[in-house]
């Protein structure tokens, strides 16, 4: 027993170190002064802790604007994607219609399509439609690319919900819409949150489209904006500034996961029917 216990802990520490070391490294970088990061061989922890990097980055109007763009675009894309995916997944799980398999396969095909190959066509199209360098210009592709995964996740969740729930609601006097809204959606909440988190991550971290379809801070998101963080010259990249921006941009994601983790409670449907 004791041996097992020891093995578990050794494994645990190894895996944690493997996963967290880069994160700790970035955090530690963000507290170092610029002088320290440009020194030949920087040590792991800062010699002198400083919050100057954070002050600088908050004072940088380009960065705060990018943060706002990121938040706006990611939230809009998530909201639209989840709403559409919920409706589509419900139809796929519940209704029998021609072309159901086609819809699902097509959705999967879209998910497998390499994003890079669409950059050129989208660039031209968005310029024609005056969507270049606008929020919708990024929201639309983000939504399209995350819909398939959301639809697949959610239709799996809907299939798990016993159909009797809905029939019971209908017998109790609910319209199809009421049954959906008051019974099915609350039961699928873990699925909805899962889909929402995945979509948000994608939109929040996406780089290729963000850098190709924007030209100014009017719609440039944080990952793209960070590419414009250049130091005094090309031989002195602002490592500490980049690390700070990374920390700032990661914090909301961590908070989101911690918040929603509580919502994603396995077995929410337990007790609905005899297990």
């Amino acid at each position: 027993m004791r041996k097992n216990w020891l093995g578990t802990w050794v494994g645990f520490v190894l895996i944690m170190a493997w996963c967290l070391l880069p994160v700790v490294w970035i955090v530690s970088l963000s507290f170092k002064s610029a002088a320290e990061t440009t020194a030949g061989s920087p040590q792991f922890f800062p010699k002198a802790w400083t919050t100057q990097n954070y002050k600088d980055i908050i004072d940088n109007p380009d960065f705060t604007r990018a943060l706002l763009n990121s938040a706006g675009i990611a939230l809009s894309a998530t909201f639209l994607s989840v709403v559409l995916a919920t409706l589509a997944a419900y139809a796929i799980a519940r209704l029998d219609f021609r072309g159901k398999r086609a819809v699902l396969s097509l959705a999967l095909a879209i998910a497998m399509f390499p994003v890079v190959s669409l950059v050129g066509p989208l660039f031209d199209m968005w310029r024609t439609f005056h969507l270049f360098n606008t929020w919708p210009g990024l929201v639309i592709p983000y939504m399209s690319f995350t819909l398939p995964l959301s639809i697949w996740t959610l239709s799996a969740f809907f299939r798990e919900i016993p159909w009797e729930m809905e029939q019971a609601a209908q017998v109790d006097g609910a319209t199809a819409w009421q049954a959906f809204r008051k019974v099915i959606v609350p039961l699928a909440a873990p699925g909805v949150f899962t889909a929402a988190i995945l979509t948000f991550f994608f939109a929040w971290n996406e780089f290729v489209l963000a850098i190709s379809l924007t030209s100014t801070t009017a719609s440039r998101t944080v990952p793209a904006q960070m590419a414009y963080f250049v130091g005094a010259d090309q031989f002195n990249p602002p490592y500490s500034q980049l690390a700070t921006a990374s920390v700032v941009v990661t914090v909301p994601v961590v908070i989101l996961v911690l918040l929603f983790q509580r919502k994603i409670v396995a077995g929410l449907t337990s007790g609905a029917v005899k297990g």
Binding site: E164, V183, A189, A272
Partner: peptide, 20 residues
């Protein structure tokens, strides 16, 4: 008529209670 317009009450085999 739709189920909701028939004014009947039903008890399902697996109860179909709303777990939330």
């Amino acid at each position: 008529l739709a189920p909701r317009d028939r004014n009947l009450a039903m008890v399902f085999q697996n109860y179909a209670l709303y777990p939330h």
